[in-house]
Amino acid sequence: MIKINQFCFCSISYVVHSCNLKYQNMKNTQNSLPPPSLPEQEGRVVQQSIDQWMSAEGPLLPILHHIQDHLGYIPPASIELIAHQLNLSRAEVHGVVTYYPHFRREKPALRQIVVCQAEACQARGARELTRTIESRTGCRLGQHSPDGQWCLESVYCLGLCASGPAVAINGCLHARVDHDRLNELLSPGDLA
């Protein structure tokens, strides 16, 4: 049943989208599905983001960035709200959110470690560094640690390629990360 509804929604919005302005009003009424289930505070942030960027050219990426900067992720329920107000289909917004590695659809762990996996850092021991961090945090690359405290992600270059290996912890950059530096960065209290 839900599937059928979604199908109708998609095909309607596809047709409307291609018929352009003339049917704009029709689309808006056809689309009036129950309001997305976003917690109030998140809903407010999403609405603010939309309001701030709505009139800009190509507003979708700035809106998503604004949401993620404030909430740490893109709540899946916000997709509907964005699609509705930008006159896009949900599929289009979903496609964009999932295409770009930067956008998360889940709340991030308390501590996010991003380790550069690209060539210049490989040449300075990034592979070994990654393995060490994995064993120290109990967290595999691309996953959360069992206690949910850490998440470990790969990045392909942070622009610190003359001073590798490079990592970013909660957005803060660190270069020349050798054994001692890593010990400082992962202070004992933080270990899994």
């Binding site: 990426l61 960035h65 295409y99 590695p101 930067h102 956008f103």
Partner: peptide, 10 residues
């Protein structure tokens, strides 16, 4: 001039 942020796609 406007600045826009990319989103991690090479």
């Amino acid at each position: 001039v406007m600045v826009r942020k990319a989103a991690g796609s090479y």
